[in-house]
Amino acid sequence: MRGLGELEAKVMDVLWSADEPLRVRDVLERLDTGRPLAYTTVMTVLDNLHGKEYVRRSKAGRAYEYTAAESREEVGARLLREVLYSSGDTEQVLLHFAESATPEESDILRRALRKGKSS
């Protein structure tokens, strides 16, 4: 899974906050980019996101309706894992991260490790 560009991330934010599948026009109306966007631009972004497997789509009449394929947290975890594996040295990347983690991040990691050991 590849990362998200700026506009892709904004489109995903719209989909993650939606309670129902959205058509291109719905996404366009909810996007807040600070600049006007063409319908075809949003349609292309959604098509690209579908190709990258970030979104699912289903036919609704003549149009598609889009939903996020994974939660924001699942995508974040997948991207972190991709960075780890692409580094060539997962252990060193993890150790460097642990050494540079904030106190809050360290607490989160400790809780997650304790939870994993008790499972």
Rank of each mutant, 00 (worst) to 15 (best):
D13M: 09
V27Q: 06
D47Y: 11
V45C: 09
S118D: 11
E91M: 10
D26R: 01
E99S: 08
E82Q: 13
G88H: 08
L94M: 12
E70D: 06
A60P: 06
I108P: 00
V45P: 10
N48F: 03
Y39G: 04
Y66R: 02
M12N: 04
W16I: 03
V11R: 07
V55C: 05
G51I: 05
L95K: 08
V75A: 15
E29R: 15
S17I: 02
Y64F: 14
L84V: 08
R62I: 02
I108M: 07
T40S: 14
P103N: 12
V27H: 12
A98V: 07
L79F: 13
A68T: 11
L94F: 03
P21K: 08
I108T: 12
S100M: 09
L79E: 14
A9L: 14
L46W: 10
R23V: 11
R56S: 03
R110E: 10
G51P: 08
R23Q: 14
T90I: 14
V55Q: 00
S106H: 04
P21C: 08
L109F: 15
P36V: 09
Y64M: 05
R23I: 09
R35C: 01
V83N: 00
Y39E: 10
M43T: 08
A63T: 10
V27D: 07
G5Y: 04
D107N: 10
T44P: 00
Y54I: 01
L84A: 09
E53F: 05
V24A: 09
S58A: 15
K10T: 01
E73F: 08
G51L: 11
A98L: 14
G5T: 10
A77K: 14
S87H: 08
V24I: 14
K117V: 11
G116M: 03
N48L: 07
